[in-house]
């Protein structure tokens, strides 16, 4: 392999040339960046160890080959032309500038690399040194960042549409502006709480139990609610829908149901698998010990929210306004009333 540097620069004059060549050679051989030297017709004249690692090719196999071997199309086909064009016109496209290009390994696979090219002369012969660095990680992280920005924008706009929905429905059904103000604020706070739970897990999803616990705490009902159910994972949108449905149930219980009197209690239980594992979830809310409840005269936001949650979980919803309190069952009705006589039946009996 010919030495990569045969510089005849003034400061080398008079020095021990053999010793300085060994030193320069060491610099090139130990460089972290890949260094490839070519001549005027594109033949590879030097190929350092970092280049061997980067392109997964040996210097021995590369010396003497055309450098286009390291390139992918369209540059692979055009490189001889680039060189000839530069030598004829002196018009610099990359020399002294550097740019991002694609490298090609011996197996044909490609990867992004950053290339800078310098030109030099020795003994009347012109050479070009290419210094290269693999930028796969950087490109990947830039792509990831762009994806996250897009995803964030999408999420923000969907959330704004959700807020639009809550605001429109609240204003539409409000008996007064004052009650609209209170309801809207409380609903937005409930939405924010659901987002808090999701943010803790980077929006991958949420545990059903965490969403339930957050709603119980927000309504100051820790001593009044009995919870039972295993670990169930929910998709982000199911988690938000559940949080909003629970908020409506709690608000309703506080105003008219079990939480209106000291004696009232609520059981929340669930079983089955979460929305990640195939929508096979049964969820029940049962109030007892509260005042006698009556079915509402119109389908307000709360009921629609519960129906929306059921649809999201690919289930049905059943509301029973029993003398002992409201019972809301989600997901079970379609599957032959799996709750009948089950856990829920015993609790409310």
């Amino acid at each position: 392999m010919p030495g990569p540097v045969r510089a005849d620069s003034p400061e080398l004059k008079g020095l021990d040339l053999a010793g300085s060549e060994a030193r320069y050679r060491a610099i090139v051989d130990t460089a972290v960046d890949a260094i490839v030297v070519i001549d005027e017709i594109g033949r590879i004249r030097a190929f350092n160890p970092s280049a061997e690692r980067l392109f997964e090719r040996t210097a021995e196999s590369m010396i003497g080959l055309n450098v286009r071997e390291l390139m992918s199309e369209p540059h692979r086909e055009a490189h001889d032309g680039y060189l000839a064009g530069y030598i004829a016109t002196g018009d610099r496209k990359i020399i002294g500038i550097g740019r991002a290009v694609e490298g090609r390994r011996s197996d044909g696979s490609t990867f992004p690399l950053e290339l800078s090219v310098a030109e030099w002369w020795a003994d009347g012969e012109r050479f070009f040194t290419g210094v290269m660095r693999d930028v796969t990680e950087r490109v990947r992280s830039e792509e990831r960042q762009q994806m996250m920005v897009n995803e964030l924008n999408h999420r923000v706009k969907n959330t704004l549409a959700t807020v639009q929905s809550i605001a429109m429905q609240t204003l539409r059904n409000a008996p007064s502006l004052e009650s609209a103000r209170v309801d809207l604020t409380e609903r937005l706070l409930a939405l924010a709480k659901a987002h808090d739970v999701l943010t803790r897990e980077s929006w991958d999803g949420a545990d059903l139990g965490d969403i339930v616990a957050s709603a119980i705490e927000a309504h100051g009902a820790v001593d009044r609610v009995q919870v039972s159910g295993g670990r169930v994972r929910l998709r982000p949108k199911s988690a938000v829908a559940l949080a909003m449905a629970l908020h409506e149930l709690f608000t309703n219980a506080t105003k008219y149901g079990a939480l209106r009197h000291e004696t009232g209690r609520i059981s929340i239980c669930w079983r089955g698998r979460g929305s990640f594992e195939g929508d096979d979830l049964e969820l029940s809310w049962a109030e007892h010990g509260g005042p006698v409840v009556e079915a509402p005269s119109h389908r307000g936001f709360g009921l629609r929210m519960i129906e929306g949650l059921a649809r999201d979980l690919s289930g049905d919803v059943r509301l029973d306004f029993l003398p002992e309190g409201l019972v809301c069952r989600i997901g079970a009705v379609r599957r032959s009333g799996a709750f009948d006589g089950g856990e829920l039946g015993r609790r409310t009996a």
Partner: peptide
């Protein structure tokens, strides 16, 4: 529409 609340808005 997969988001329940957005679906409600569209329905209305």
């Amino acid at each position: 529409e997969d988001e329940p609340m957005v679906a409600m808005l569209i329905e209305d």
